[in-house]
Amino acid sequence: MSTPTDQLLSEFIDAWNAGARPQVEDYLQRAVPGERDELAERLEDWLLVAPSPAYDAQALASIRAEPGYVGALAEIEAVGLWPEVLPRLRERAGLKLRELAGRITAAFGLPGEEARAEGYLERMEAGDLDASRVSRRLLDALGTALGVPAADLLRAGGVRPAAAPGQALFRAERYAAASFEADLEALSRAALTPAPEPMDELDRLFVGGPDA
C-alpha cells in the first residue's frame, strides 16, 4: 500500500535529522507511482537546506566505508593542493608555464624537451599528476625556480610516505566499482602487449617516483 507524499517527506526529514541515514530510494518506492516525481522534488528541496545530522560513531564508520567516499579520498590524496598552489607560486615568480619548463629543462640539461616539460607542468597544475610519483630532484628544481623550499611543495602536494605494496595495489581509482570487469580485460590484454618504451630522464623526473 502506498503512503501519501507529505507523510513520506516528513518521515524522511525526521529520520535525516535523527542521523538514521534514510535512503531516498526506500521512500520513493513507497510513494504512489504517479507522485514519485513530486516527492523527489520535495526531497531535493529538503536536501538543499537540511542541517547536517549529528551521526554516531557507527553511522560515521559506515559513511567512511562507502565505496564513493573511499575512492574519492584515494584520488584526492594523489592530487593535494597543487592545482591551487603551483599556479599561484608561478604567478608570483612572474613565470609563464613555458618559461618554467625552460628553467626545469635547463636545470637538468634537457634542451629541446621544453614542450614536453610544459605538458607535464600543466598536468601538475591541473591536479592530473600523482604527487607521490614526482621525483625529489624535480621538486628541488621547481622550488628553486619558484622561490620556495621543496619541502613546502611536498607539503602542498600532500605527499605522504609511500604505501606498502599491498595497499598500493588495492588503492581505489575512479570508477573502481564499475570498471573492475574492464580492468580484468585490460590486464589480460596487457599480458599480451609488448612492454612500453622505457622512461627517459624527463619522464623519470615527473612520474618516476620520489627517488628517480
Binding site: P67, Y69, P83
Partner: peptide
C-alpha cells in the same frame, strides 16, 4: 557509487582551485 566518487573529487578540485 562512481557518481558519488566523481562528485566528491570534483568538489575537492573546485574547492582547491
Amino acid at each position: 557509487d562512481d557518481a558519488v566518487q566523481l562528485a566528491l573529487v570534483n568538489l575537492w578540485k573546485n574547492m582547491v582551485r
